[in-house]
Amino acid sequence: MVHFDHVTKRYGSLTVLDGLDLRIAPNEKVAIIGPSGSGKTTVLRALMTLDRIDDGVIWVDGEPLTHMRRGDGLVRADGKHLRRMRSKIGMVFQHFNLFPHMTALKNCMEALVRVLGLPVEEARQRAGELLAMVGLADKQDEYPARLSGGQQQRVAIARALALRPKIMLFDEVTSALDPELCAEVLGVIRELGRAHQLTMLMVTHQMGFAREFADRVCFFDSGRIAEQGPAREFFDAPRGERTQRFLRAVMDAG
């Protein structure tokens, strides 16, 4: 479904992704963990085309994400190609990034009307169903400022799902939340994984959730995957010394 083929991303002299190779199967749930600055968020941002990659190719659904085929080679994709590829992917952010001047319902309708061109009534209905799915049917007319962090993040999930992506990206979606609110958001993600055919990538510090929910865990260090494996195996018997040290530090902290 997704294939990072030798992908490199630099910020100035800093290399955040260093020839990354990563393959993700359809419907697979992958948790990405690692110390800060290890490039894990960049993986999601590159896949959402928010960050440009410097080298390598990202393949999505058998097509290059930010390139187009021309003759035998690949050239940088134009806007039309990018928009088509982007429509397969949805993203949820650490700080929600809801549109503060729109109600929960309008947040979820916006792209349906503006991007997909759905009639307003149909958009309203689809947005309402999604808000109901994340347990916020009664909050659809509230503005984000009047919702708790957990509620805002659930609206953000509904908003991303509205466009029916095949791949969902979760970027530290519970890091800005109290533990209590965390649980309600993780509950929604768990439900999503169960009820829908979605490929999911999540950057997370919630080791417990990663262990229980993910099919596979990738441990990032210095822009590469230092170790990966099936979730339970990974947490129960980490092989690398760096991995063990990281997991010990995380367990001590939380």
Binding site: M48, G79, R83, M91, N97, F99, A111, A160
Partner: peptide
Amino acid sequence: GQWEAASALNMTQSQTLRRV
């Protein structure tokens, strides 16, 4: 983050400006 959210929703630059 507002630009990024709009971009993730596949909105164009001018839509993002006008609507968000």
